[in-house]
């Protein structure tokens, strides 16, 4: 594989929400909402362009960060499946954004209120980290993206700030951290055995042996905890039920699908 034309769309899809997040954080208050609105439109356009590019050219998009080739460099990759997921995420984010315009509007006459301000910034954070999950080409970038997704999801759970929300958020972060540590342990063992973390290179190297099965078990259990599948589901009902409707839509529809 080598970098393809239009690969810059991949990092743009990841960077745009984070740029919006930082702009919103600096500008503050009602501006955060405007920034989120503009970022949603730009991000949706980027993802549509990316999808069009993949459909037209008919092959996988690939981008090498800094021009460094894997296994030393980091590659971003999007095939047909990632493209569909990116599109779905963008559509859900747009829908939640439109719904939340009323729910999370900054009240007139107030410069900044905590709930709307946090919600709009966290929504952009969820979007950026999900796009990174979907386009990352190696296991360690995937780990960092999954952690970012957790860091965006946990504050969404505790958005209302009541005691039971905080308790649910704390339980969520304990489960999610254990899950991502198990995943990281699997990635570390794979690196120890095969000397690369790039998913495509690994696919050609991996052999059926006890170590690979152990890694498979660790990663599966870790991601089960993050996705809240039985029997590691107990954190989910209080966390998702206690979040405001729009935040709950983000959590149920997007955050747990990331892992």
């Amino acid at each position: 594989m080598s970098p393809t034309t239009g690969g810059w769309l991949l990092y743009l899809a990841v960077l745009l929400p984070f740029i919006g997040l930082m702009l919103g954080l600096v500008l503050g208050g009602r501006n955060a909402q405007h920034v989120a609105r503009v970022t949603m439109l730009l991000g949706f356009t980027t993802v549509s362009a990316l999808a069009w590019h993949i459909i037209e050219s008919g092959h996988t998009l690939e981008y090498w960060l800094g021009g460094w080739a894997p296994p030393l460099g980091i590659s971003l990759r999007a095939d047909g499946l990632s493209m569909v997921m990116l599109l779905v995420v963008a559509v859900v984010i747009m829908a939640v954004g439109i719904y939340a315009q009323a729910d999370f509007d900054t009240p007139q006459g107030q410069p900044e209120t905590r709930r709307p301000f946090s919600f709009w910034l966290l929504m952009l954070a969820v979007w950026g980290s999900l796009n990174l999950v979907l386009v990352s080409g190696d296991l360690f970038t995937l780990y960092v993206a999954l952690e970012l997704l957790t860091f965006a999801g946990v504050p969404l759970v505790s958005l209302d700030g009541r005691g039971e929300n905080l308790r649910a958020a704390l339980r969520y972060i304990l489960f999610a951290l254990l899950g991502s540590l198990l995943y990281l342990l699997g990635a570390v063992l794979l690196y120890g055995a095969y000397g690369t973390l790039d998913i495509q290179l690994l696919a050609g190297l991996v052999r059926p042996e006890p170590l690979t099965w152990a890694v498979l078990a660790l990663m599966t259990v870790g991601l089960l905890a993050k996705t809240a599948l039985f029997p590691l589901h107990i954190w989910l009902p209080p966390a998702h039920a206690g979040a405001p409707a729009a935040a709950s839509a983000l959590l149920s529809a997007l955050v747990i699908k990331g892992s």
Binding site: F151, S158, G163, L166, R167, L170, R171, I173
Partner: peptide, 28 residues
């Protein structure tokens, strides 16, 4: 990443103590 995760968890724990006066994970 581990440091930020710990910081976030500790911040949640401190706020839980401020709001409810206890640090238990048991339900209400």
């Amino acid at each position: 990443v581990a440091f930020s995760a710990t910081a976030l968890a500790i911040a949640l724990l401190l706020r839980l103590y401020e709001v409810t006066g206890s640090v238990s994970l048991a339900s209400d």
